[in-house]
Amino acid sequence: MRWPLLLTPVLVGMLAAPAGARSRADFAEFAAQEARLVAVSHRLTTASADWCPATMPQPGWLLEDRRRFGDDDWSDAQRVYGATGDGPFIAALVPGSAAERAGLVRGTVIAAINGEPIETPSNDETIRIDAVIVMLAALDPAAPLTVTDGAGRSYRLGAAPGCASAFRVERKGAQAAANGVLVRLRFDLARDVTDEAELAAVVAHELAHNILRHRARLAAASDGRSARLVRATELEADRLSVWLMADAGYDPAAAVRFWTRHKRPLIRAATHPPRKERIAAIEAEMTAMASARAADPSARPPLAVAPPPLE
């Protein structure tokens, strides 16, 4: 399979560093945070699929790979996940999702999609997971798909369209980040945000970056590296997250609670608005959304329909 040119450069930054020797309890907690992330992200992506400008199949899984674990770690990780083969495998599964209804279970290795084997163009730790993401992104989200596991068994998954994005828990890097294709959440932050609605606020914000194509729009802007434009994208993501959360049945006010409670900045303050400004933008968008949907229950977020130019 040829990797889409628009996605290939983005995948370069997806790789995670080896975890190092860890306990089985640590892997169990890491897997628990993966399960939380996939449950929240699946709810957010599928609930807003009717207005997202780009969609892809959202089977309801989060993938891991044997390569992400050191040799000293693998036996314990294998017991936690129930993984038996070498390849990208299901680390967490959403109950009632297309993947779960098809009979897939945690630990299942994904060997092929619609009969096409998973490409492995390099030995990088996440490249096989990334290949699955690229393959899914190229499919018709309104069509069913077939998954083949490592033992050659086939599973027919019903159509499950959702906003185009994949998700991953990592141990290093930014606390939360989006690169246009993938939302990454650091393990320690996920563990710290115990309230599900607040976790949804964090994930919705990063998902909004991908929906609004902020990485690409900043690259195309004449002054895309300026802190001013980066701050503008942060406020846009805060505003769109309100709609994502509301569609998924979360109270958008959880975003206000998160920013009120989370004293440490998630990233450099120089390129991100102060908390008070973010909270004001979220509250104003909540009011605007309530007014828009009181007049038209099917109203779509103006930011997603026609995002303003970054200038």
Rank of each mutant, 00 (worst) to 15 (best):
I127Q: 11
I129K: 12
P121R: 14
G60S: 13
D140C: 00
D50V: 05
L37H: 02
N114P: 02
V105R: 15
W74K: 01
C163E: 03
S122A: 11
G96W: 13
D149E: 09
G107V: 06
R67W: 12
P161M: 12
T84R: 14
V147K: 12
A39S: 11
A54I: 01
A35K: 00
T146L: 08
L93H: 04
V134G: 13
I127G: 04
G152T: 07
S48N: 04
I129A: 04
S154G: 00
S154Q: 15
R156D: 14
I129S: 08
T126Q: 11
R36K: 08
A112L: 05
I110L: 12
E116C: 05
T120K: 15
A159M: 01
R101E: 09
V40L: 06
V80S: 08
V109H: 06
S41T: 11
Q78M: 14
E170K: 13
A35R: 03
Q175T: 05
V38P: 01
G87I: 04
M135V: 01
E100T: 12
G70E: 12
R171Q: 13
V40R: 09
S165V: 12
T46G: 05
D140F: 01
C52W: 03
E119T: 14
A99D: 09
D65Y: 05
V38Y: 03
I118Q: 11
F69Y: 15
A138D: 11
L136E: 12
W51S: 06
F69V: 10
A99E: 08
L62E: 06
D86Y: 07
P117V: 10
A151W: 02
S48Q: 08
P57K: 08
E119I: 14
A77W: 14
G96Y: 13
G85Y: 08
V38N: 04
K172E: 09
W61T: 15
I90H: 01
L44R: 07
A49G: 00
G152N: 04
S75M: 09
L93P: 01
D124H: 08
L93Y: 01
R168V: 13
A35T: 00
S48F: 10
G107W: 03
A83T: 11
D124L: 13
N123W: 06
V109A: 05
D86H: 03
S75W: 10
D76H: 07
R68S: 14
